[in-house]
Computed example of a mutant assay.
Amino acid sequence: MRNIWLILIVLFLFACSSRESKEISPKKIPVSSSSVESSSSEASSSSLRLSLPESSSSSFESSSSKRSVFPLKTQDASGAGEYKAGQKVLLGWKAADENLCFNGMSVSPSKYAKALKMLSADSASFTMPADSVFISANFKSCLDGIGTLVIGKLRWTNQNLNIWTLTGSSCYEKKSSNCRKYGRLYDFETAKKICPKGWRLPTDADWDSMKAALGENDGAQLKSREGWENDEETSGNGTDAKNFHAIPAGIVYEGSYMYRGFHAYYWTASERDETTAFYRSISYDSPESYRYYNFKTAGYSVRCVQDVQ
């Protein structure tokens, strides 16, 4: 009997031990929804990266934007097209109206303006950048802002010409502000060609004709009412009786600029010999105009005339 009870006790203890081991077995810890979404996103991103080509998307976009040629657009000038960076492009132009004169070129973007080199009065060279560019040739009336007056049988321009040329002319002291105020200074050969259609450079005889028509003190009648230096206690200004507006623009001679404020020099179309030509001068210290000659390389002011019908 005792043995039976021992066997029952052992079986009871064994059953209790088995139930306790089941109750304390480790449970799985639930994973939060945010953790699942994060790992899911990482997995998706990882699989996306694996599905792309070897080159990244940024390098793909960069390569697609690369160009071998770039567009050049022009207005009132030839030379438009597509060119490689560094290629030199020849530009040309011609005014649609003979009364219009070239007045420079505009380059956009303006940072490429230095790539433009003037070759002649109607051509230029442009070094193409790795960018799109727009270039326009600009024109203005050859007698822009210039009036006229009639003395005797001739019509004269009443201001000095300021028509741009690549060579043969300059602004006093090479300042564009002086060109606007005084006009340009031209050498003789350029002066003979610069008057616009229907006008011409006055001859020595044309100046004689005007001097005869004005009579005494012709220089004082031609000088402007201001801008002239005084001759000691005497004003150097004139009466400008005919609205000729002679101003003391000075000259350029052998590279030196001089006499601004004191003298006005005007080329005539009359040569003295192969190297010299006649000019007329108006001075701060005299009421008369004078006739002289000088080397054709000197730079003087220019007026134009036309015959009155």
Rank of each mutant, 00 (worst) to 15 (best):
D206P: 10
S63C: 05
P53V: 02
S177M: 09
W5S: 14
S136G: 06
A95K: 02
N103D: 15
E288D: 15
A43Q: 13
L222Y: 03
E271D: 14
W93I: 01
S57T: 10
W164P: 08
K94W: 00
F70K: 07
R272H: 13
I282V: 15
I9L: 15
L143M: 04
W164A: 09
L50H: 05
S125F: 08
T157P: 07
S108K: 14
N160M: 08
A113G: 01
T276G: 00
K88G: 04
E82W: 10
S40W: 09
N138P: 03
S38P: 01
M105S: 03
C16N: 15
R280C: 10
Q306N: 11
C179M: 08
G92T: 14
T190C: 04
G261Q: 00
S123I: 02
D206F: 08
L91F: 03
L154H: 11
S256N: 12
R49M: 06
N160F: 09
V305Y: 00
I24D: 08
L214W: 06
G250C: 00
L119W: 06
T268Y: 06
S68I: 11
V10C: 11
S56H: 01
C101W: 00
N294R: 14
L116K: 04
S235H: 07
F278P: 01
N230E: 02
W228M: 06
K117F: 03
D231G: 02
P287M: 12
T167I: 09
F295V: 10
S123N: 09
L119Q: 12
S270F: 01
A298G: 15
W199H: 07
T167H: 08
K111I: 13
S170I: 07
F102T: 00
L13S: 12
G145R: 10
F12V: 15
A249D: 00
S33G: 14
S44L: 10
C142Y: 05
L8Q: 11
I29G: 08
S65W: 04
D204A: 13
I135V: 06
E216P: 06
G227H: 02
I135S: 03
S58F: 08
S78R: 06
E37F: 13
S18P: 03
T275N: 12
F60L: 15
L166I: 02
N103H: 01
G219E: 02
S286K: 05
V107A: 06
K94H: 07
V308S: 04
K211V: 14
M1F: 09
C195T: 00
P129N: 12
S21M: 14
E98P: 11
L185N: 04
Y83S: 01
G236H: 07
M210S: 11
Y112V: 05
E233P: 06
G255A: 05
S40Q: 13
S120V: 00
L119N: 12
R180T: 15
S62H: 08
R67N: 02
V150N: 13
R260H: 06
G86S: 09
S177N: 03
N160I: 04
C171W: 10
Y112G: 05
N217D: 12
S286I: 03
P248M: 07
Q75M: 08
N162G: 12
E232Y: 14
D187F: 07
K140F: 02
A77H: 08
Y279I: 01
S136A: 14
R280F: 12
T127N: 13
